[in-house]
Design a protein around this nucleic acid. Sequence first.
DNA 1: CTTTTCAGG
DNA 2: CCTGAAAAG
Lengths: 258, 258
Amino acid sequence: MNIISYNLNGLRSALSKGLADWVAQVRPDVLCVQEIKAGREPLDVSALTDLGYHAYLHTAQKPGYSGVATFSLEKPLAVVEGCGQSCYDDEGRVLRLDFAHCSVLNTYMPSGTSGPERQAFKVEWLHFFRRYVRELQAAGVAPLVIAGDYNCCQTELDLRNPKTNQNSPGFTPEERQWFRDFLADGFTDSFRHHHGPVPDRYSWWTYRAGARARNVGWRIDHLLVDNALAPHIRHADMLHDVVHSDHCPVQVELDFNA
Amino acid sequence: MNIISYNLNGLRSALSKGLADWVAQVRPDVLCVQEIKAGREPLDVSALTDLGYHAYLHTAQKPGYSGVATFSLEKPLAVVEGCGQSCYDDEGRVLRLDFAHCSVLNTYMPSGTSGPERQAFKVEWLHFFRRYVRELQAAGVAPLVIAGDYNCCQTELDLRNPKTNQNSPGFTPEERQWFRDFLADGFTDSFRHHHGPVPDRYSWWTYRAGARARNVGWRIDHLLVDNALAPHIRHADMLHDVVHSDHCPVQVELDFNA
DNA sequence: CTTTTCAGG
DNA sequence: CCTGAAAAG
């Protein structure tokens, strides 16, 4: 099972840059996308459904803002939109698809970069989300694959300039601690598990100052899998040469027969 | 004296489409532009001052909105920004440059197309402007050349679809009457004077539905000159093949020796 | 720097 | 259909 997570920075923009052709080539079983930025009119996803994908969208209230969508070749057994908390669901941040072998939770976590108010909102979200996932685990929704733009990372290997970003949103001590705690609840960072402590592998680069060309990035898009799935990770990667957005797709391949 | 009036629909946009090269070619003595759409930062007009032009700007309060500018090769004897009425001056609609042989009044008249409130504002403006010009005449500011986007026209020859636009902003009976009255105060429509009742000559085409390609337009940009200047009109034209905007430049050449 | 909306035309 | 601002990232 090939699962991809990809922050598109606008679904329409990404489609205009050839997203559908790339999806047709790679043909992931499940494609989790974030920041779809749906407008007042419903988004046209026919370019992807025409490839045989089932499409599930969870949009924000505010036009052109946030929103997630999951595309899957197999029809899911169940689909759950949102997390039941309106302050988050109004921003279109969570979408769950349950399959026979796993449950894929697609999430777009808040960015704290626009100010202290949003950083506080993000931290509240992080704690809420950890509780929410524990509840899913307790309810037997498992094994979970939590795909998405986490907007944070854990170790100094996960960003090019860790020293100068000790207190930047996405790498504050509080967020790093949260990441450790979250993993300790029973998750495996599929990329790190597969590659070990390799440096310079990122999933996001600011559009400013040619950061991507110089690989000045952050690894903030993750595919965390239930520890029970770790032995089934056949492959994991950051697809840094795929460019439809300021993020790149991140991928995990799970082999349920292994 | 070659005078051009040109609604640029954004000075920066027009510059990006080669405005400066065109100005360098034509080299008008006076260039009156409208809808410069200055932002919070001062506009960079060095591309024009580098050609030897003196630059005078009258910007609106609201960033990115309205505003006029006049560029002249000769340094004017006097420059008057605005008309002394703050409700109009806040929108950057009037700029006067006095020269030895004439006074060039550059104006961007309100458009009434965004709703009845703005159409009412436009009609008030029209009456105010007529009074204002009479005061200038009375004060001996003469002979006047009133260049600009009038956002209205007078006769059925001035727009492609007069029948369906009898009550459209820019061609209401009230505005047509105003135009007649304004001319009766002592002005000559230089284009009409030079060409007579020719049809199909416009200065603005909506960007929608390929109107310009089909020449579905309006002649709403005018160079009205004091009747005393009419004998000095050597040439007048709509430069419809010059494209940096949804308007085209309009031109008059005055020969003060004739 | 880029996406989207929005006002304004 | 365009421009430019503004919010958000």
